[in-house]
Design a binder for these strands. Structure first.
Lengths: 333, 333
DNA sequence: CTGTTAGCGCCTTCAG
DNA sequence: CTGAAGGCGCTAACAG
């Protein structure tokens, strides 16, 4: 009861050619007389021959498989990225091995190693947590890696992102312009490079530009989920903030509902801007104003870059910045 | 610039043993003197040897890789299932090749074939769309397949689900008990077996039990997303329904907001029950009452079943039914 | 245009 | 307990 009943040999015998010829037609090599090619193709479909990708991978040293490291498929932001990745991967005939890392360094190392063992042709990395150990492993491995919707200030890998600094700076400026003196920066774990080295920097720049002094107590962090956001409600209020830039839609939804439940009227008494423009932003009442970013495209472009890298092509630009925007909804005035 | 610098031969030479011995220690074969075993292990870690899974797969005919067919990673229901799958897969040292099908028959066939080509040891299928063609392919393939959170009334594959019929019957009964004569059944595509052969059946049973005649015009279908749900608002109202059982949380959120925006007060003038109890149910205002189901566990158990199948163990029960429940929130009285 | 011949890196009998 | 040898199914020169 083998997975594989018939092999290239069976086809060769049946078509009265050598296995090399069968291999040629299967791989679209043009050096085959169209007559024999047709004969082979006929036998292939008659026998239902399906090339064994494992054997092919061993012989050719290419698996047409890439590894995708994702913090959590369950996160809407990352799953949208993954969708973009998968669509262009399928387009280029690559399969995807997906592995959740939970943003844990040890798990990341583990799945990375196992991906290398599987001889993937490339790796797409999503996540914002790495230590020097991981960075070193990435750089010393011989497979191309590209970061999708994820940044590491000190990494030299290729990546696709938006300009997080400017995006956050812009929305913070909007809030400041609306006369808010105390704008909270509601963030995920501050040790994540994307928060510390990018979004927070944008936030500070806007404050600077407006001559507002940075206040550490307005930087409020928690996990990227609804419950955490909800629990932050009282903390944000306690800090006397009257507006907030939130780095995650789930958190923003939680914060919004907490404020509403506490009798704070949004946007009249408090304004909120979130960053990912996921479908959540439209489900909450009022709907969430948000930075917009082409999440799907981030994934798609990253995958496209990876195909080039795997094809030993040079990348004109290693760090790709896609355009962002802003959509005003009900949580801002 | 090979992916694989050092092979089993290198280790063998360095440790002054044959490659067979190295293979034995790598595979945990006990027939190795502990002394030589240690020597080999020392060399392995010193050289940083990492077994080539592709070569191993070719030689052993096992890839420790499974295929996961998912309608759309972006869907919260399925991504939660996928998370359960991945977690126990990692536990059993299996890798996952993920492929989106978009519930399209042609795409499903395509990814299924490509998964077989990759010599996966098993396949986990999520989705509710299949024609006889796919069914036949599943059944004639030599790799085990299990359905996770997905049903096909005429399939003989192993599967893990909840009792959709009863679950929907129960909540419909609740609504009927609240004096509603016209309860809408808001469904995804009715050609999906899960809707047609399960949930709709439960809905009808509850009606029957209450002596209410089934009214075709109260079966309202659309796509499984927020926008579709929102657009259904006027249709549901047009059908004079005063309550609805909705088969998808995104749709339910859309319907809820549409009704609210139309000035219909939920739950006073209209009651809604949804089915997946995803985090969306808690974000909407009022919060959505919902059937509860152990989505993560559905995936986890399905993966566990698959490991048994791949291990040629018999399954005591082919169709696993996990318990469901109900949580009352703000959209019901 | 087609066939022959080596491997790819590892597992797995079969001897010893 | 250990080594030798033959594949697994396919690709990739190399001849012809």
């Amino acid at each position: 009861m083998d997975k594989q009943a018939i092999t290239i040999y069976d086809v060769a015998r049946e078509a009265k050619v050598s296995m090399a010829t069968v291999s040629r037609v299967v791989n679209g090599n043009t050096n085959v007389r169209s007559e024999t090619k047709q004969r082979v193709e006929e036998v292939i479909s008659r026998l239902g021959y399906r090339p064994n990708a494992v054997a092919r991978g061993l012989a050719s040293r290419k698996t047409t498989t890439i590894g995708v490291i994702i913090p959590d498929v369950t996160d809407v932001y990352f799953s949208e990225l993954a969708r973009g990745i998968d669509d262009v991967a399928q387009m280029y005939k690559y399969q995807i091995i997906l592995a959740n890392s939970d943003e844990s360094n040890s798990k990341t190392v583990e799945v990375f190693e196992s991906l290398l063992g599987k001889q993937v042709d490339g790796i797409l990395f999503m996540g914002n947590m790495f230590d020097d150990n991981i960075r070193a492993k990435f750089e010393s491995s011989n497979v191309p890696v590209v970061f999708a919707g994820s940044v590491d200030a000190t990494s030299t890998e290729a990546s696709v992102n938006i300009d997080y600094v400017t995006a956050v700076e812009e929305v913070t400026a909007k809030l400041v312009k609306n006369k808010h003196k105390k704008v909270a920066f509601v963030s995920g774990p501050i040790e994540h490079s994307i928060n510390q080295d990018y979004k927070l920097v944008g936030y500070k720049r806007a404050l600077d530009a407006a001559g507002i002094e940075f206040d550490e107590s307005l930087v409020i962090t928690a996990d990227y989920d609804y419950q955490s956001g909800y629990q932050l409600g009282s903390i944000v209020l306690g800090a006397k903030a009257t507006a907030a830039v939130v780095v995650d839609d789930e958190m923003a939804a939680g914060l919004l509902n907490a404020l509403t439940d506490a009798g704070v009227s949004v946007p009249d008494d408090f304004e909120i801007v979130t960053t990912n423009n996921s479908h959540l932003t439209v489900i909450t009442r009022p709907q969430l104003s948000s930075i917009t970013q082409p999440i799907y495209d981030l994934g798609a472009v990253a995958m496209r870059m990876l195909t080039k890298l795997m094809n030993d092509e040079e990348l004109p630009i290693k760090t790709m910045i896609l355009p962002h925007g802003y959509v005003k909804r009900g949580t801002t005035k």
